[in-house]
Amino acid sequence: MIVYGVALLSACLILGMLIGEALGVALGVEANVGGVGIAMLFLVFTSNSDKFKALTEGTSGAGIQFWSAMYIPIVVAMAARQNVAAAVDGGLLALLAGVAAVVVSFALVPVISKIGKNDAPPRINDQGAV
């Protein structure tokens, strides 16, 4: 049943969001701390586990794959509802602050990626792709 997969996905998101909110409250922060990331961990865990096979294989899995495939259209809709006009109206200070933050962060991607590689011993038998 397709809905089993969709329900599993929903359960993962809701559980993750609850934990993220609770983390926010515990840390005294007005934000959800990693709710989506925690939900993703639940889904990775269940889709790699034999116990949840009935919810992740066959047509049930198709229910999750559908939403995964809807990701790009949803992102296009998300782009279309951004407050682009406000960003353009922000003036030079907002523009410079935003642009500089992005440029410096881009430049750090290869640097920090390297830190990780030095710390982790090379692995050979990890599912092919490096």
């Binding site: 996905l9 929903s10 993962c12 998101l13 993750g16 969001m17 709710g35 989506v36 939900a39 993703m40 961990l41 889904l43 990775v44 889709s47 992740t56 899995g61 999750i64 794959q65 939403w67 995964s68 809807m70 990701y71 949803i74 992102v75 998300m78």
Partner: peptide, 11 residues
């Protein structure tokens, strides 16, 4: 829906 689809990509 954005978060729902993002989580689905982890499948």
């Amino acid at each position: 829906l954005r978060d729902f689809a993002i989580v689905a990509t982890a499948f």
